[in-house]
Simulated assay, not measured.
Amino acid sequence: MAIIVTFDLPGAGQELYDAVIARVTDGRGFARFADVGDPGLVSHAAGPVDGGFRVTEVWESAEALEAHAKTFGPILADLGHADLQPTIIPAHNVVVR
């Protein structure tokens, strides 16, 4: 079942987001995050919100997200955000164009 995952980064800005993305891509030999192609990632969007930054993703399953977290989690921990807990809800509908 598809899931919608929202990461809120209070007190953080685009700098943290860009640092995480740089490590995810550079550490795996990709020039852009769009090229990473993690199995199960349907969509990814990020942008500023009052008091921080938000990332919203759609994953094909919780298992696909968990596999990605093995790469993403240690990077966040290294950057001082180990306590980040996403909000996860089941997707009722997903439209991909």
Rank of each mutant, 00 (worst) to 15 (best):
L84S: 07
T6Y: 13
R28E: 04
A82W: 06
G29F: 08
T25E: 00
D83Q: 08
A12N: 07
V20Q: 02
A45K: 12
G40Y: 04
V95L: 15
V55C: 11
V49I: 12
I21L: 06
A82R: 02
G40E: 03
V49E: 10
D26G: 11
A91C: 04
A69V: 10
S61N: 02
D38P: 15
T87K: 15
D26A: 12
D18F: 06
E57Q: 09
F30A: 09
L79H: 00
V58N: 00
T6K: 13
A2K: 13
D8Q: 12
G37T: 06
V24H: 09
R97I: 11
A69E: 15
S43M: 04
A69M: 13
G40T: 02
D50P: 11
A46V: 03
D8A: 08
L41R: 13
A34T: 12
F30T: 05
I21D: 01
D18N: 08
V58Y: 00
V95M: 15
L9V: 07
A46P: 11
L16C: 01
D38G: 12
A82N: 06
V20H: 02
W59G: 01
F33M: 12
A77C: 02
T87L: 15
A91I: 01
I21Q: 03
V95T: 12
D8H: 11
F7A: 07
H92T: 14
W59A: 01
K70P: 14
F7V: 07
P86N: 05
E60P: 12
F72C: 05
V5H: 11
V96C: 11
A2F: 14
I21C: 04
D83F: 09
I89C: 15
Q14F: 13
Q14S: 15
G51E: 03
A12K: 06
R97L: 10
A34W: 05
I89H: 15
I21R: 10
D35E: 13
D78M: 02
Y17C: 10
G47M: 10
F72H: 10
G73P: 11
A82P: 01
I4N: 03
V49Y: 09
F53Q: 04
D8I: 08
I75W: 04
L84A: 10
P39S: 05
I21S: 04
D78E: 09
T25L: 04
A31K: 08
G13E: 01
R97P: 13
L16F: 02
